[in-house]
Design a protein around this nucleic acid. Structure first.
Lengths: 327, 327
DNA sequence: TACCTATGCTAAATCGATTTTGTAAAATTT
DNA sequence: AAATTTTACAAAATCGATTTAGCATAGGTA
């Protein structure tokens, strides 16, 4: 349409006009035609030729979870700013599905991976690295896997909450967590234990509850209820995840306890419910935007092949303690 | 690797071996090599050649909303079953962004669109149809646009809830909605008005509140509070959306009203909070899975070119009334 | 005048598949 | 036995871009 060869158009559109010394006059003519005709390069053809899909794979546990939803949102925005698209996949807490997903994305030729690793995905991630695919982990990581990761400083987050409780004079603080072997949870427990020790408050084993991950919701509720009933001296509870916190709210309502008079409550990881549930549940808020942005940055750094090695492959961002009515 | 031509491999892999009378022996050999070498066709090359990306575009208002998140989840699962991938995009209630998104997906060469239309996207959708792109709308639709859509039966949903309230002897029922011109909301209001009429309960104009869509959250709260205070005779409130319902909970807490003694509450569209917030908020639950499946079916039908026209281009699925403590 | 270099583009190869066309060899028909 | 058809694949064209190599023309140098 512009009366020139396809290659000439390609040069101009890809900003190589100067380098290929295309006359400004011709370049203008091309741009004009492009504008008027609304021409858009065929994505697949570009991908095939360049070997880059300009697409990132985001693998999360569950899209419908609020933490992951927010994460996805920010990542999408950030990726778009840099000219990348995102395809999401959720593992739905199913390790086997995680593997399939990664292979599916591989088939799809994504340029890089952003993964919130679930237990059991370790091997698949290791494979990706062997294929020299750029990977950034979020929210958690595997100590054995040497790839960049970004997460909240779990230890510090718990400490902030614990310090608040202790400052209020509470000392019989329970800690409710899950028996999954995840770095985050271990760190959160470490925060609990360490803060107590720092304040010379004796750590009581019976004040720490490890709920079974694979149990039914109802079973967990009962176990939690029993835990609180059997330890009436407890004046505060720290829930290690928002799922646990929500269970907690239900149990506390069942027992007719008033927050914070009968029991102070702090939960790790915010949730819509915690803002609205009277009297408002105090939480450690994850710096989701920060995590997303840092993760994208790390991934982009790997995608730019001319870049050197990453200077900071492990990023821990501080969480924010949000004081509401419950503590 | 199998000692045959690429075309032969292609025939076998695409199930055209019989048709092209490739010997079983050769086919087996090919499959064997494929298995052992872990060969996967290059997606982009396939797409380029076939013109099909095997990808669907899902455009929703906000990925982080729970309705949309669940929708996305089901759609992803269903699409995967049929060998399709999904790319999501959220308009974040921004009409202009909606247009950009649609164009972006076009560039990406998605085979079809699943859209929850927001006011202002009408023109863009019209354009897609002119380009003969398959489109299915969900949750709402534009009367002027002739493309299949799937949504809950809003009228019937409200009626179910209203019947329950009336059966309990409540007659001073308020209806809180938003002043956005959306089919869903009009239908819900119609459900309210019609049910009252059916029971010969006089419709009072002052019992219907149209909150301004663009107002700040705080302003809406105040307006809602004033509404309830100025109409103390009201014995029940029907909220037309879950966002409104959540505002309602906050106002009711502020006013110190007890549900359902002082005020019965029903809300259209469930939300995590409504399950947990004491005493549990009764809701009309959207048949999200059904909507997602029906929408995918309609889209797939359009993608199979050999299919005739769609027999039922407008699907309305019944909602489910979930009785909790609030009504 | 012959040779070299810079300019400004075009032609052709390439990415990795699918699909149409072609073609030996074997089987069947005339 | 010659002609035709069927079998079983291979060769080549194609999708729509990018990129490398090529090729006239103009200007400058030996």
């Amino acid at each position: 349409m512009a009366g020139v060869a396809p290659s000439t158009v390609s040069f101009v559109l890809n900003g190589k006009g100067k380098q290929m010394r295309i006359r400004d006059e011709v370049a203008r003519k091309i741009m004009q035609v492009v504008e008027k005709s609304g021409y858009e390069p065929h994505r697949m053809a570009v991908n095939l030729r360049t070997g880059q899909s300009k697409t990132l794979g985001l693998i999360v546990e569950s899209i419908s979870g609020s933490f992951f939803a927010s994460l996805a949102k920010t990542i999408e925005t950030e990726a778009e700013r840099r000219g990348y698209n995102v395809v999401y996949c959720s593992t739905e807490n199913n390790a086997q599905k995680g593997g399939e997903l990664i292979r599916m994305l591989g088939r799809q030729m994504v340029d890089g991976y952003l993964i919130t690793p679930a237990p059991g995905m370790e091997k698949e991630i290791q494979q990706l690295l062997q294929q020299h695919k750029p990977v950034v982990l979020m929210d958690s990581y595997f100590p054995a896997i040497k790839t960049p990761y970004v997460l909240i400083n779990n230890f510090d987050g718990v400490q902030q909450g614990m310090e608040h409780l202790i400052k209020k004079g509470l000392t019989k603080i329970a800690f409710v967590t899950v028996d999954v072997k995840l770095i985050q949870l271990e760190e959160r427990l470490r925060g609990y234990v360490t803060t107590l020790k720092d304040h010379r408050i004796p750590l009581k084993k019976k004040h720490v509850l490890h709920l079974k991950y694979h149990k039914q919701r109802e079973d967990s509720l009962n176990e939690l209820q029993e835990f609180i009933e059997k330890n009436p001296e407890i004046d505060a509870v720290f829930f290690a995840t928002n799922y646990l916190g929500i269970l907690g709210l239900e149990v506390i309502a069942r027992l007719g306890l008033k927050m914070p008079q009968d029991l102070s409550v702090i939960c790790f990881d915010d949730h819509d419910i915690f803002r609205l549930y009277p009297p408002g549940i105090s939480v450690i808020e994850q710096p989701i935007e920060g995590i997303a942005k840092a993760a994208i940055d790390l991934l982009m750094h790997q995608l730019d092949k001319n870049n050197g090695p990453i200077k900071k492959p492990a990023i821990q961002l501080p969480g924010r303690f949000i004081l509401r009515g419950s503590a």
